[in-house]
Design a protein around this nucleic acid. Sequence first.
DNA 1: GCTAATATGTGCGCTATGTAACATAGCAGC
DNA 2: GCTGCTATGTTACATAGCGCACATATTAGC
Lengths: 249, 249
Amino acid sequence: MQRTPPLGSELATSIDPRNNELLAALPETEWHRWQQQLEPVAMPLGQVLYEPGAALSHVYFPTSAIVSLLYVMENGASAEIAVVGNEGIVGISLFMGGESTPGRAVVQSAGQGFRLRAQVVKDEFNRAGAVLHLLLRYIQALITQMAQTAVCNRHHTLDQQLCRWLLLSLDRLQSDELLMTQELIANMLGVRREGVTEAAARLQQGGLIRYSRGHIRVLDRAGLEKRTCECYAVVKKEYDRLLPRTTAV
Amino acid sequence: MQRTPPLGSELATSIDPRNNELLAALPETEWHRWQQQLEPVAMPLGQVLYEPGAALSHVYFPTSAIVSLLYVMENGASAEIAVVGNEGIVGISLFMGGESTPGRAVVQSAGQGFRLRAQVVKDEFNRAGAVLHLLLRYIQALITQMAQTAVCNRHHTLDQQLCRWLLLSLDRLQSDELLMTQELIANMLGVRREGVTEAAARLQQGGLIRYSRGHIRVLDRAGLEKRTCECYAVVKKEYDRLLPRTTAV
DNA sequence: GCTAATATGTGCGCTATGTAACATAGCAGC
DNA sequence: GCTGCTATGTTACATAGCGCACATATTAGC
């Protein structure tokens, strides 16, 4: 089991900010304005990018990391609202005008990203140019993901949701292997750890994945797509529609 | 059982566009620009304001009506994502850049509203003035509602969710009586009608509400707030924070 | 007032998931 | 190689909500 990812390529994806698709989609003028301001940051597993009600100092553009937006409740129960990878930006409340949200953002899969000071983004936003419209389209896609998550929580089985979650993560990774314990997945999905264990066992039995102690390798992506609910496709389609790739990936 | 609402007052709230809080919050300049363009519309129960994927021709500002944003799935199951009353606007995808969404908007409680042609809103939005920022703050509040709905769907009992739903509706009405069958509520919450019947019976037994054939009268609002989950308060607080009332209500 | 339509009430079996308590296995560090 | 930690596996039981079938009650239309 070679669990070390190809180091060279990972570094490459981390070093170039334009591996983030939003940054890649910036027109040249705006890109030049931002280029000097972008600050590379390591995004280790579990890092909290913002807490409920806290004013944000930066927005984050993941390149290889994946960030979960989740709500934690009074009794400690939690649920993931949406996931953000190299297609997006973390910290939208900053330029929406609210400065904070009741949710929290946690790095779910370690990696690299870039960040930008709050004021820079706000200024750019207020220029009301291409960046504004790009970000608004992204937010609409994010809204779709959140809405579909709500529906999925209501109507679909744990098995389906696990597949959806794996696929969403897979889409935001360069590899077919996730570093992720079942405990963590359970927290994201807002279910018991045992439930994830059982669902994962079923997927492994079906030959779709193979896992061991925090390493999940996807063997049959098409199989996952077959087992998941429609939610995955709806969200993906909407992202593709609203944010067509500007660069070949 | 006097079920006819006080007609005089209802007409009053319907006729003045500024009973919609977003319209009321417009600065004078923008208000004057819009005033001539606003078209009063009746919003009867069940009216569909937009369908999945359809391009929108107008945005709607309810004054006395309440609109549900919901997702309908392949198998016909549905779930409400958020609710919009006189505090908001229906059709945000229009100016977010996507023109459409995978969801649908249905009038959940009949009433009045005003609408505005797509192009007018887009033009105003592109002016990047006060309206832009007002709408963005509204969208952030809406996002909070959607996120909290997702969490609520995951973790809370039907009883709690019914209370939340009643309270959200109550906040958007002038009266303490909802015209709403249990069947419809079930569709909104994405649960069985029988489940709503049982939950409603428990609430009635507790003296919190009284209902009969599509009429629900709230007798003890504080009681509902005690029985509901934290989700209601979180959402309400965020609306109040992001959209402070400009007019006395 | 009768009839039909609509709205609500009830019971029963089923399943997915929650709660709880505990067993095993792989891995890390000494 | 032992120790202990972390991740995963297993089992027994409780329960909320679903699907279904059907009973009852209220209102509307004629």
